[in-house]
Design a protein around this nucleic acid. Structure first.
Ligand SMILES: Nc1ncnc2c1ncn2[C@H]1C[C@H](O)[C@@H](COP(=O)(O)OP(=O)(O)OP(=O)(O)O)O1
Ligand SMILES: [Mg+2]
Length: 585
DNA sequence: ACGTAGGTCAC
RNA sequence: GUUGUGACCUACGU
């Protein structure tokens, strides 16, 4: 080799330049730019302006800002950033990322590399074949997704929720409630279904037809046919889209677009429009869906129609997870059990979900049989909190209570195993107690040394979920206020509530007019102000801020001129006398 | 306000 | 060893 020192020198300056280029990215600007472009693509698709749409998509595909946010997603934010594809490469340093940026900007589009096959266990014990693309392909997919997704966000059916920005499982379940919660609900028969190996069977031709002349159509085709590497051997792909591809979820949604319509549901129906017959309501989350029907017969008709609709798309029902039931019998959906009882629609954690939770807890307590008490608590608390948060909007109080009891037995056994000779009373004494500062609960598992304790599901505050409205998408430029409002709804009580909580604390949590707790059942606890404050700020809706000196007479909005009172007391005491009152919510 | 890390759930 | 999308939560840092 000749000129090695000169080559090495240019390599060094280049890599230093790469790192520098990466560090000098203005993230706020890049994110904002991508968001704006997504909104313009959405608008063009909504207006049906094909020429403009394709031009904007080309702009997105060429955008440097899109490339950098895509690299950041894949190499920095994603959980799988440390896991390479078949090339064994990852990009965890500024240098690697800057180099990736340079390579992608140069863009000599090389053929996508096969995905790496890894099998992971599914919930039902079977195996899930993952297809892990290289880091580079993941970045390119993220980039293409930013161009393709906003177009389809403008077109997707309003009751499709899975894999879509701004939409959650709770929105899907909430939508079922709005259809079936009334006593006189017209739709009481349910087709509850799931598809077999959905991603693996997506028909390429149908999918590419739907994508049409999208500028990066060829790249998508490349990923679909890149093949897989399994145990060192290459195998061509017969069909489907890899479970592990960044755009795969979007591609499934595109393939399944129109399914609600095929089921007889009407998308974006104006509220005043009436139909002669009761049409099924179709709620889909990825490949899992329910069709709420007027009669058993209608449910079976829908099933038949959908089977025919799915067939050319390569898809078919998973018979093990598909059935027609009456709402009084109930069905499972997204980890919930939905059932009508005594004319009321109830949603609670499904048996399967409870079983899975218990299995996890058991596995952890076995694994950590010899670990420190505080470590077991640290490991279990996120699980308990996360699980409970998912189900806190459901009718879960009984399940939460039962689980608390089950956990007690579980943890008692865990403690007993480490001290086989000690008595029951000794274990109760040394591992359980009123560890929680202000709950009068002696059955809390805790660690005397550190004061750490195991949380109980029943401590989770019930919060009602607000369902996303209609076809709303975060890519819709006309709805930025709606999404800003939705985001604030969660954050607001804490930030804005600071002042209110401060006022309440000064009043010792009492209403000065009637002398009782401002929030029934929540006495002021000076020892645990934080807990109390959280509880308080979540429930301050039916309180009023009352001005002591009226604003019309120069009274200020400062806390020393304000007092918190029950809105009921406000009505009773001041019904005749209209003083200046301001609602807080 | 921005950034980092960890976690839960659904599919 | 374990990928992806989406929703959510916590902690820490400037
Ligand atoms: N952990 C995951 N990683 C990547 N993709 C996933 C994961 N879980 C689910 N998916 C995607 C790919 C699946 O095809 C699709 C539907 O999920 P699911 O119904 O559980 O499995 P499946 O449809 O592939 O098999 P089954 O025949 O058991 O229903 O969602
Ligand atoms: Mg399936």
């Amino acid at each position: 080799m000749t000129g090695t020192t000169a080559d090495a020198a240019t390599r060094v300056t280049k890599s230093l330049g790469d790192a520098k280029a990466w560090r000098s990215v203005n993230w706020a600007e890049a994110e904002a730019d991508v968001r704006r472009l997504r909104q313009r693509i959405f608008k063009a698709a909504q207006d049906g302006d094909a020429k403009r749409l394709r031009n904007l998509q080309k702009l997105m595909l060429r955008s440097r800002h899109n490339t950098v946010v895509s690299i950041r997603r894949v190499t920095q934010l994603s959980q799988g950033r440390r896991t390479p594809g078949v090339d064994g490469k990852v990009a965890l340093s500024d240098q690697d990322r800057g180099q990736l940026l340079r390579e992608l900007e140069a863009a000599p589009r090389c053929r996508p590399v096969p995905v790496r096959r890894v099998h992971i266990p599914k919930a039902n014990g079977k195996l899930r074949p993952l297809g892990i693309p290289t880091i580079r392909d993941r970045v390119e997919q993220a980039r293409v997704k930013n161009a393709l997704e906003p177009e389809w966000e403008a077109l997707f059916e309003e009751r499709s929720y899975g894999f879509r920005p701004g939409r959650s499982c709770h929105d899907a379940v909430g939508r079922i409630h709005t259809t079936m919660s009334r006593k006189d609900a017209k739709r009481t028969w349910v087709l509850d279904a799931d598809l077999t190996s959905a991603f693996d069977r997506v028909n390429h031709d149908r999918l590419l037809d739907a994508i049409g002349d999208f500028p990066a159509r060829r790249e998508i085709q490349g990923w679909l046919t890149a093949g897989v590497m399994e145990q060192g051997r290459f195998a061509p792909t017969e069909g489907g889209t890899p479970q592990g591809g960044v755009i795969s979820p979007l591609l499934l949604n595109i393939t399944l677009h129109g399914m609600g319509n095929a089921a007889g549901d009407i998308d974006r129906q104006p509220i005043w429009q009436k139909t002669a017959h009761v049409t099924p309501t179709f709620v889909r989350y990825a490949d899992d869906f329910v069709a709420m029907c007027a009669t058993e017969e209608q449910a079976y008709t829908v099933k038949q129609r959908l089977a025919e609709w799915l067939e050319p798309r390569g898809l078919a029902f998973n018979d093990e997870k598909t059935r027609v039931v009456h709402i009084d019998e109930g069905f499972d959906f997204l980890g919930f059990h939905v059932r009508r009882f005594d004319g009321k629609l109830l949603t609670k954690p499904s048996r399967e979900a409870v079983k899975r939770f218990k299995e996890k807890v058991t596995a952890i307590s076995m694994e950590m049989a010899t670990a420190k008490t505080a470590d077991v608590i640290r490991r279990l608390n996120p699980l308990i909190k996360g699980w409970s948060t998912y189900y806190r909007g459901a009718a879960a109080s009984k399940v939460f209570g039962d689980l608390g009891h089950w956990m007690y037995i579980r943890m008692f056994r865990w403690a007993k195993r480490r001290h086989p000779k000690k008595s029951t009373a000794w274990i109760q004494d040394n591992y359980f107690g009123a560890f929680h500062p202000h709950r009068k609960d002696n059955w809390v598992f805790g660690d005397k040394e550190t004061g750490a304790y195991l949380v109980k599901p029943s401590w989770t505050h019930i919060v009602r979920h607000t369902v996303v409205t209609g076809a709303a998408s975060p890519d819709d430029p006309s709805l930025v206020d709606y999404w800003a409002g939705r985001r604030n709804k969660r954050k607001l009580p804490e930030a804005h509530g600071r002042k209110v909580v401060g006022m309440a604390a000064r009043q010792k949590g009492l209403c000065p007019l009637c002398g009782t707790d401002l929030i029934a059942g929540v006495g002021y606890e000076p020892e645990s102000v934080r807990e109390w404050a959280n509880w308080f700020s979540a429930n301050f809706r039916h309180l009023h801020k009352h001005h002591l000196i009226y604003r019309s007479r120069g009274g200020s909005d400062q806390v020393n001129n304000l007092v918190l009172i029950h809105s009921d007391c406000h009505r009773k005491h001041h019904a005749s006398d209209h003083k200046e009152l301001q609602e807080i919510a």
